[in-house]
C-alpha cells in the first residue's frame, strides 16, 4: 500500500493546476473545469485520509462533495449559457460590469 503522502502530493499538484487555471484562463467553461479539478483534489485528500485512518467519514463526505460539485456545475453552466446568449461568447474578461 502506498504511503498517504503520495496521494497528498498528487492532490496538491491537481489543486495547483486547477487554481492556476482559474486565475489565468479566459474561457468560462475552462474555468468551470478547473474548479472541478480543485474540488477533486480535495476529494482525493479526503479519500486518502479516510483509508489511512480506516474511517468511513471521509467517504461519506466525498459523496456530499460530489453532489455539491454537480449542483455547482449545473448552476455555473446555466449562468454561462445566459452569458453566451447575450454576449455570444463566454470570455470572462468581457464580464466586468461590476467595476469602478
Amino acid at each position: 500500500m502506498l504511503p498517504v503522502s503520495y496521494y497528498l502530493i498528487v492532490a496538491a499538484i491537481v489543486f495547483c493546476i486547477g487554481a492556476y487555471g482559474v486565475m489565468t484562463l479566459r474561457s468560462g467553461i475552462m474555468i468551470m473545469m478547473c474548479i472541478e479539478l480543485m474540488l477533486n483534489a480535495a476529494n482525493i485528500n479526503l479519500i486518502a485520509f479516510a483509508s489511512h485512518f480506516s474511517q468511513v467519514n471521509g467517504h461519506v463526505f466525498v459523496l456530499f462533495s460530489i453532489a455539491l460539485a454537480a449542483a455547482e456545475a449545473a448552476i455555473g453552466f446555466a449562468i454561462l449559457m445566459s452569458i453566451f446568449r447575450s454576449k455570444n461568447n463566454v470570455n470572462i474578461d468581457n464580464i466586468n460590469i461590476l467595476r469602478w
Partner: peptide
Amino acid sequence: LKKIQTGVVQNYATATV
C-alpha cells in the same frame, strides 16, 4: 483605491489565493 475593483472575477480569485 477604487482601481482595485476591476470587475474581473479572476483578479479577485487571484487576490484570494
